[in-house]
Design a protein around this nucleic acid. Structure first.
Lengths: 197, 197
DNA sequence: GATGGACATGTCCTAAGGGACATATGATCG
DNA sequence: CGATCATATGTCCCTTAGGACATGTCCATC
């Protein structure tokens, strides 16, 4: 249920419409926390029903801007300070890496090179963003300060992944256990063992 | 739909039961790709219906071991080489970091210290696992070679996060825009601007 | 031989994610 | 003035995730 608190956190900066919030998610937050507009509108409705946000104004084309209420602010602060962090990571690239041994050496090298390029590029984007902030381009409000901290995480994470993908290209492909030794051959599906225990 | 391919990948190493697979997810894979047993049994059923796996043997207590079929192996290889990688990351800790400005300085320091401890510990676990592999404790099969590559990613990712959390503790908390300058005060909810554009 | 515990598989139900589609409205420009 | 585009909000529906609960089975041990 982090989307709920994500929305509250964004609204703590000031009123915004569902459209605004959806843009922020798709433009900058998308890499660390994806959220499509259907979910956002639905959640805003629920938040309003629960009294955590309220409609601040109705704008030009049906635009509704929401403002966080005191209850909403209390809720997001409570979440930040009292609720356990969920450290779950769901990284498909890492899951795939477990199965690299199923790939041709060529395909694998291509794959890793593409991954390295991808991560390097994202890391670079975050780095530039960080620089602009450090040059004072976005002011020095508490919000942008926190943004700076988040960006730093992006830089470090994606740099680490880029380095990893580079490094992985240098790992020699393990031969499918052929000529290394006489190889006690019959061990016919090692993971099988119908372990009763 | 990565669980499907995750299961196929694991079964490519050799036959296993739903219980075995669930344990592998909860013990070692849980950090990078969580999966509970209800999903696993359901997906195994679907995989069997689609002919990508088949029941290899029935063991002691209703135990059913599944074996990957040729079609299943082809499917997972196709996924690895041809299907685009999903780079989506969903990191609650990073989402939270955007809202650090809403926290007391004390709470934030406590939070960051706990985060640093957590990431350091996980990184250390991965590091030890990598060492054991490098000492040859797990042999040198292609599978364990790939495992080694995945572990390396874990080491680097969690080290990066640990360093980040340490670094973040040194970032001075931005004062809520008070005494820094005369401060053109009236700019009443900067994010509001009912942008019609 | 009864009982408790680890093994093993499964269902049920609700919530969350997300693609596809629908619709209203104001702005722009020929 | 009519067409078209970007803005803005929403619904529908299917899939995936995951907590809670239920059941069966073999083993140890008292």
């Amino acid at each position: 249920m982090s989307l709920r608190h994500g929305l509250l956190g964004l609204l703590a900066e000031g009123p915004a419409s569902g459209y605004d919030l959806a843009r922020r998610f798709s433009e900058t937050l998308g890499t660390i926390w994806p959220a499509q507009h259907p979910k956002i509108y639905a959640e805003l409705g629920r938040l309003a029903a629960d009294g955590l946000v309220e409609v601040e104004s109705e704008g030009p084309r049906r635009r509704k801007a929401y403002r966080i209420t005191d209850a909403g602010l209390a809720e997001v602060k409570h979440w930040l300070s009292e609720v356990d962090v969920d450290h779950t990571m769901r990284l498909q690239p890492l899951l795939r890496s477990l199965f690299f041994w199923l790939m041709d050496a060529d395909d694998l090298q291509r794959h890793l090179a593409a991954e390295a390029r991808f991560y390097t590029e994202i890391a670079e984007q975050y780095r530039q963003y960080a620089e602009r902030k450090d040059r004072g381009e976005f002011g020095n409000s508490p919000q942008t300060q926190s943004m700076r901290v988040a960006i730093e995480a992006g830089v470090r994470l994606y740099s680490a992944l880029a380095d990893w993908a580079e490094w992985a290209q240098t790992v020699p492909p393990a031969k499918p256990a052929k000529s290394t030794k006489p190889a006690k051959s019959t061990k016919p599906a090692r993971a099988a063992k119908p372990t009763t225990r």
